[in-house]
């Protein structure tokens, strides 16, 4: 049985529908968006990793601030940028 996708985020400006109670990380992963940011030193691609708030790999721009996608519940109108704190692509 599929979820009702009632929440609308924008991810890099594009709309993404997701379910109430999902986290930003799971909404992105469910949409096969594995690449979240580049590491600041080596510029190597990174995605969510521990999904429990410890590793900080999924810290990306959410509504202007840097937040852990795995600990942030989706909210209607939320603006997500696939970009880390020091990651200045685009």
């Amino acid at each position: 049985m599929s979820e009702r996708l009632e929440i609308r985020l924008t991810v890099n400006g594009a709309p993404l529908a997701c379910a109430v109670g999902q986290t930003v990380a799971s909404a992105l992963l469910a949409n096969s968006s594995y690449l979240l940011r580049l590491s600041p030193n080596g510029q190597t691609p990174r995605g969510a990793f521990c999904m429990m708030g410890a590793c900080q790999e999924c810290a990306i721009q959410i509504d202007g601030g840097i937040r852990r996608a795995c600990q942030t519940e989706v909210r209607d109108g939320m603006r997500v940028e696939l970009r880390g704190a020091a990651d200045d692509r685009g």
Binding site: Q22, S26, L36, G47, A48, C50
Partner: peptide, 23 residues
Amino acid sequence: WTTPGVFGLAAATAVMKAEKALF
């Protein structure tokens, strides 16, 4: 191990418990 798509094992349980889903 930093490649996107590599997750912790506990990540799987976290998502399965919270969302009844796995990626």
